[in-house]
Write a protein that binds this DNA or RNA. Structure first.
Length: 572
RNA sequence: GCACCUGUAGCUUAGUUGGAUAGAGUGUUCGGCUACGAACCGGAAGGUCGGGGGUUCGAAUCCCUCCAGGUGCACCA
């Protein structure tokens, strides 16, 4: 597609008689908030001093000198110190609709990521523990990034770094040995394991000997005692099966499920490399890497004083493994900001591992804000948490209720309620900038009006309804684009034009909320268009143009929502 | 105590590589279904952009300082 901004930059560059780089121009050119001020604007303040002229004069002068094809820009106006560019709307319309007609369901897809590999480490729940709403953000943010990177042509690998290692498994084994017969793990296994875990924990705090036994169990598990490894596998398998149910609902996909236990077997080499680097030092009985040179006060512990490894060691093993296995250009870690220091530390230590520079540079912590309940911080131990399964169940039920009320004749109510209820939850988790904390509000989740997932789905359903009524879809070549020059149509076309840039911006900032916001804007623009313009009208030319635009909106809404992990119903 | 993050309308928030009148949703309120789906659209009211100082032609945005909340700060993950 024509890059209008680029054309304007070129034209300005040729017109000015002072030195200014293309990059600077790129920075100066802005998109006016109010479209009355044009599509692009060039503020002339900053050159006033240098040229000893008023910004107004500079703008006037420039206007005289700039030569740009009317095919791109139909008008340039001076508005005080601003030079406002009005792009040729027919060209814009032609470009956008042609591009969508050529690419259809692949509009916005690109090859900018070709040849680049990106690993995304997300979700990472702990085995034998409930999947609660604290895991929601990492799962949907990571999932959205996964989809979007893939769409932009990157070789994308989704990693679920399961928490399947640690003394807690010694405890579980000890508990299961004692009372395993009382629990049927074929039903709600995670709840049962949770009960066992709580029971053994209570016993451990009463009786030091039980705790000691649990530690011993874990040691034997590590040493490969067959009976224990079997138990561990069993806990892991039933847990994954439970998680998979939720992933199926959320549409999450992982290419690899290597958990901590897997990397725990690969820590020896990490320790050896660090030892050889001379940076591994003894400190209070532990082996650590001092990071004060890196501006990090807290040293990174590699080996505990009892000789065993720690989370950081396993994460480093994962970096080493992933660098070798995937030769990644980027490796993203989607976790809450509680782990900011941890990642700062291991990224600093990773420089000592002897992996490629690009891998080191590609390590990135994508952190997000905490979810709190109105009653305070969530805690699995205190039983103060909301399970994702329960939340989804509730929003799906709400969707069902609303369907029953508004569209009782709908044929596949169950399926639609699922899409709407889950869509509401996913959208809610993605719609605000990831860094902000959130107090979990069930009422907000159950609201399907306004800036919500169901709003976008509803607008999509409207486009489908309109298109359903058309016998012959118009061809792009037949369209008379003059029929799409009203402000409501143009507002949509401008948004459609932005789509690919939005996707790129999402990856630059690792911020899916940009796409979520964009989809709201597009849905809203269509809703206004729909209210202002009757689509199916007598005049064939007008009808065809509006129908075609409706089909374009329909496609982009669906592509965008799917990238966020939201399914679109055809009716609701 | 130190470091980092957050603070924008009653509530949830967009805008933070400095740019024109701070933009939405929700709630409140008024209006619009005999026109393609009202889970919608339009109007009104609602803002010391946490406070103060500074830099600049220009600050929600950059710098300093203070206030409030959160998170982290050695063998948990």
């Amino acid at each position: 597609m024509i890059d209008f901004k680029h054309e304007i930059i070129n034209a300005i560059k040729k017109a000015v008689d002072f030195d200014i780089s293309e990059q600077d121009l790129h920075k100066y050119i802005e998109k006016p908030k109010n479209s009355a001020n044009g599509d692009y604007a060039f503020p002339c303040f900053s050159f006033a001093k240098q040229l000893k002229k008023s910004p107004q004069e500079i703008a006037e002068n420039l206007k005289q000198k700039i030569k740009i094809s009317p095919e791109y820009v139909q008008e340039i106006k001076v508005s005080g110190p601003y030079l406002n560019f009005y792009i040729n709307k027919i060209t814009l319309t032609q470009e956008v609709l042609n591009e969508i007609s050529k690419n259809q369901e692949n509009y916005g897809k690109s090859k900018i990521g070709e040849g680049k590999t990106i690993v995304i480490d997300y979700s990472a729940p702990n085995i034998a523990k409930p999947f609660h709403i604290g895991h929601l953000k990492t799962t949907v943010i990571g999932g959205a990034l996964y989809n979007i990177y893939k769409y932009l042509g990157y070789n994308t690998i989704g990693e679920n770094f399961l928490g399947d290692y640690g003394t807690q498994f010694g405890k579980l084994i000890e508990g299961y040995k004692r009372w395993g017969k009382d629990y049927d793990l074929t039903q709600n296994p995670i709840d049962k394991l949770g009960e066992i875990y709580k029971r053994i924990n209570d016993l451990c705090s009463e009786d030091e000997q039980v705790l000691e036994a649990a530690r011993e169990d874990f040691k034997q598990l590590e040493n490969g005692k067959e009976e224990y490894v079997e138990l561990w596998k069993k806990f892991r398998d039933v847990s994954i099966k439970e998680f998979q149910k939720i992933y199926d609902l959320l549409g999450s996909h992982f290419d690899s499920w290597k958990g901590e236990a897997f990397y725990a077997t690969k820590t020896d080499e990490v320790i050896q490399i660090l030892q050889d680097s001379g940076r591994l030092v003894e400190s209070n009985g532990a082996k650590v890497v001092d990071l004060t040179d890196e501006g990090i006060d807290t040293p990174c512990i590699i080996c505990k004083s009892n000789g065993s490894t720690i989370y950081a060691t396993r994460d480093l093993a994962a970096i080493l493994y992933r660098a070798r296995t995937y030769d990644f250009d980027k490796c993203l870690y989607v976790t809450s900001y509680e782990q900011n220091l941890h990642f700062k530390q291991i990224f600093a230590v990773a420089k000592l591992l002897g992996i490629k520079e690009k891998c080191i540079k590609g390590l990135k912590h994508v952190s997000y804000g905490m979810v709190r309940l109105p009653s305070g911080k969530m805690s699995t131990r205190a039983g103060n948490f909301v399970k994702v399964e329960d939340l989804l169940h509730e929003t799906i039920e709400e969707a069902k209720k609303i369907i029953e009320e508004k569209n009782p004749d709908l044929s596949n109510k169950e399926e639609v309620a699922k899409k709407v209820g889950i869509g509401a939850v996913i959208f809610n988790s993605l719609a605000t900038s990831r860094n902000k904390d959130e107090i979990f509000d069930i009422k907000a989740m159950l609201n399907f009006q306004g800036e919500t997932g169901p709003y976008i789905q509803y607008m999509y359903v409207r486009t489908k309804s309109v298109l359903e009524k058309i016998e012959n879809m118009p061809k792009f070549e037949q369209l008379k684009l003059e029929n799409l020059q009203d402000e409501y149509s143009i507002a949509i076309i401008k948004l459609l034009y932005d789509f690919e840039n939005i996707l790129v911006e999402v990856t630059e900032k690792e911020e899916p909320s940009i796409l979520a916001r964009y989809l709201l804007d597009l849905a809203k623009a269509y809703s206004v268009f729909y209210n202002e313009n009757r689509i199916i009208v007598e005049d064939e030319e007008v009808k065809n143009a509006r129908v075609y635009l409706t089909a374009c909106v329909s496609k982009v809404l669906k592509i965008g929502a799917n990238l966020l992990g939201i399914d679109m119903p055809n009716k609701m």
